[in-house]
């Protein structure tokens, strides 16, 4: 085992980073660097190893092997010093149900040894930032899922962190609540906060991440900017065809040559092409009668499908 912080300017530097549990390899020798000021994403399905990686970065889980440095320090020996400069939004909210909204922020600030008057002022500012100032004196429990999530994000910002870790920040939220969270995260990014997030939502990663890695079965299978990944692993456009149930097997061969690549999913057929409308016309010319056709831009979902043969949300 060789775990030591190395000379690097990256905020997070990992080489051969692994996490093994008794009968499971959760993270298998991954390499990545996160630079100051960027928004970096771990994308992958449930069980890919995203949360295990985040827990190691957050210094609450010890790497089994490999090198990891966070903020230039060693997570094993400098845990409290590193955590003092991190903001962590865990997958499941860990709010204090017995305390009021503003007290949640106040007590959390105290864990960072922030003086009482500063803690009070910051609680007020952060509640304004996440648009919960009118709920400051309310109980936590009746808040909606999106509000609780925003409160958790506000709490993670109470120590003005250099690095914000978000584990699936919008899973389970309705579209409106998700966009509100994204908007706040985007503002933080503008302010220069370094953000590391995990997600299994393509649109989330595309909206927020400058750079990301795609994880599958404990390994990194691709990395780059969302655009470069799409350019590399997908075509410009995708034609989605839906046929009547059980019609797909009868298609055998009939779509040959229309697109660069054809992906047959249980519920639809995807044709990867530079020109979706032309492909749709070709499909009709061959006498095929899909129930619906949709031309769209390629997304990270298509990248993932290409890399693993599976869709992200299973």
């Amino acid at each position: 085992m060789a775990i030591s912080p190395s000379d690097t300017t990256a905020l997070i530097h990992a080489r051969g980073l692994s996490k093994r549990f008794a009968n499971l390899v959760a993270v298998d020798a991954i390499d990545f660097d996160v630079d100051r000021g960027e928004a970096f994403g771990f994308l992958g399905p449930n069980g890919a190893g995203k949360t295990s990686t985040m827990r190691m970065i957050g210094c609450v889980s010890t790497p089994s092997s490999g090198t990891l440095s966070v903020l230039g320090m060693n997570p094993i020996t400098d845990g409290p010093r590193i955590r003092a400069r991190l903001g962590v939004v865990p997958q499941a909210d860990t709010l204090d149900m017995e305390l009021h909204v503003d007290e949640n922020l106040f007590t959390y600030a105290r864990y960072f040894d922030i003086p009482r008057d500063v803690a009070r002022r910051r609680a007020k500012e952060l509640l304004e930032f996440v648009q919960l100032n009118d709920r400051a004196k309310d109980e936590v429990e009746p808040l909606s899922g999106g509000m609780k999530r925003r409160l958790t994000i506000a709490r993670a910002l109470v120590n003005e962190p250099d690095l914000l870790l978000l584990d699936e920040p919008t899973t389970g939220l309705d579209p409106q609540a998700r966009h509100l969270v994204w908007d706040r995260l985007y503002r933080l990014k503008q302010q220069g906060v370094t953000i590391v997030l995990t997600s299994h939502y393509m649109d989330e990663a595309e909206q927020l991440c400058d750079r990301l890695v795609v994880m599958d079965k404990a390994k990194i299978v691709a990395s780059g900017s969302p655009r470069s990944l799409i350019d590399r692993y997908a075509t410009r456009e995708v034609l989605e065809l839906r046929f009547k149930i059980d019609a797909a097997p009868a298609l055998d061969g009939k779509l040959e040559g229309i697109a660069d690549r054809v992906e047959v999913l249980p519920d639809r057929v995807l044709l990867y092409t530079q020109d979706g409308d032309a492909a749709a016309a070709a499909v009709h010319e061959r006498g095929l009668q899909p129930e619906s056709t949709l031309v769209r831009r390629s997304t990270l979902e298509d990248v993932f499908l290409r890399l693993t043969g599976r869709s992200l949300i299973e």
């Binding site: 409290p80 003092a84 865990p90 860990t94 709010l95 204090d96 864990y111 993670a156």
Partner: peptide, 14 residues
Amino acid sequence: WLRTYDGMLATPLT
């Protein structure tokens, strides 16, 4: 149930 300790351990607390 509330994971209060997880929240605490994400701070400098040990």
